[in-house]
């Protein structure tokens, strides 16, 4: 829950705005419709001596109530589009590149230069990310479709056999975040977790230059 209010990545902060707009619009529309339904139930309960009205339609009103949602939907689409475009666009020259491969039922992270880490369901691997650096993650799958989900980043992307999915993440809080596979991938899908560890950039560089021996 707290990740919604305080996402751990800059992309997450942008997407949080989308959540806020849609939740606010949803609550407003919901309360309006609930009020109308309960008003009918209270005011027009069956009582002896009162006849129901006989009107069957009201075209101007019906058109109005189709036009208002249309405008609302248009505005929501504009918000969606504005927020989504920069997130879907991977930077041309990221500060860091990491390749992640999903397999049944764990993950392998390849930082380049021979630094590779991998795990099992019982020993989930750690994905180290440098704080504040825009990091490009290239996602692949070795067998079936998986999904790379970091709840703290409000983000996931599918790992699909035969294709590479590329996206950027810019962590803004140091910390350890429990993450997992989100797409059902068979028997131990429930245990296919990993830890995202956002560490200061210097510690991250030391991890790479030591060939993966100096864990931050």
């Amino acid at each position: 829950m707290r990740w919604l209010f305080d996402p751990a990545s800059q992309q997450g902060v942008a997407m949080r705005a989308d959540w806020y707009v849609f939740v606010a619009a949803g609550i407003a529309v919901g309360l309006f419709v609930y009020a109308a339904i309960f008003w009918c139930l209270i005011a027009y309960r069956r009582r002896t001596g009162r006849e129901p009205a006989a009107f069957k339609n009201n075209p101007p009103l019906e058109i109005t109530y189709a036009a208002i949602p249309f405008l609302l939907v248009l505005a929501l689409f504009a918000v969606t589009f504005a927020i989504e475009m920069p997130i879907d666009e991977a930077a041309a020259s990221p500060q860091q590149r990491i390749s992640a491969t999903a397999f049944r039922w764990s993950w392998q992270f390849d930082y380049g230069g021979g630094v590779v880490s991998s795990g099992t369901t019982m020993q989930p691997p750690a994905l180290y990310l440098p704080l504040g650096r825009t990091t490009e993650i290239a996602l692949r799958s070795a067998d079936v479709t998986h999904s790379f989900w970091v709840p703290a980043f409000l983000f996931k992307r599918d790992a699909i056999p035969g294709m590479t999915n590329v996206f950027d993440v810019t962590p803004r809080h140091a910390g350890t975040y429990l993450s997992r596979c989100a797409q059902f991938c068979g028997l131990e899908h429930g245990l296919m977790t990993f830890y995202v560890k956002v560490v200061p950039a210097a510690a991250f560089d030391r991890y790479l230059s030591s060939g993966g021996t100096q864990k931050p």
Binding site: D18, L154, F155
Partner: peptide, 24 residues
Amino acid sequence: LNFLIGGITGVMIASPPIDYAAHD
């Protein structure tokens, strides 16, 4: 009453930035 909640959350997850968190 119930379907309205399902409809509103449905519009939410039709917005990809929300779906990136909510999907699956």
